[in-house]
Amino acid sequence: MISKADKVKRAKKHFNVGSADMSHGEKRIIDIDGKRIGIFNVHGEYYALHDRCPHMAGSLCGGPVTGTALESSHGEFVYGKEGELIRCGWHGWEFEIATGQCLVDQRTRAKTYAVTVEEDALVLHI
């Protein structure tokens, strides 16, 4: 996986997407030239996902930020990853916000972008 620093370095455009005042579990959907991008705060770190689910091109970020039942043995339900997942608004596939990784399919990953905090502002690098 490409590091955040590399993503910033490789990005061609940089946008101020508002103040860095989000808290864990919050999301903000912005529109850049018709491209919708979700900005998230997960445990104080900022992340961005293209609002396009790799499954069926649905509104990935239109779904809830959530946790889920972690892998367990039969009949056990261990809730975890609260605020670390986005559940696609269309078909409900779960993705890790930080990595874009789909929980049910290792080969499926949502497009991620780097977000940095610069003087209390969020800067999106795409």
């Binding site: 499954h55 889920t68 039942a69 972690l70 892998e71 367990s72 043995s73 039969h74 009949g75 056990e76 339900f77 261990v78 078909h91 409900g92 596939w93 779960e94 929980l103 049910v104 399919d105």
Partner: peptide, 15 residues
């Protein structure tokens, strides 16, 4: 359906 609602059966590891 499993892909959408895996959380109902978190003990499964495959499709």
């Amino acid at each position: 359906n499993y892909k959408a609602l895996r959380k109902e059966t978190p003990w499964l590891k495959r499709l």
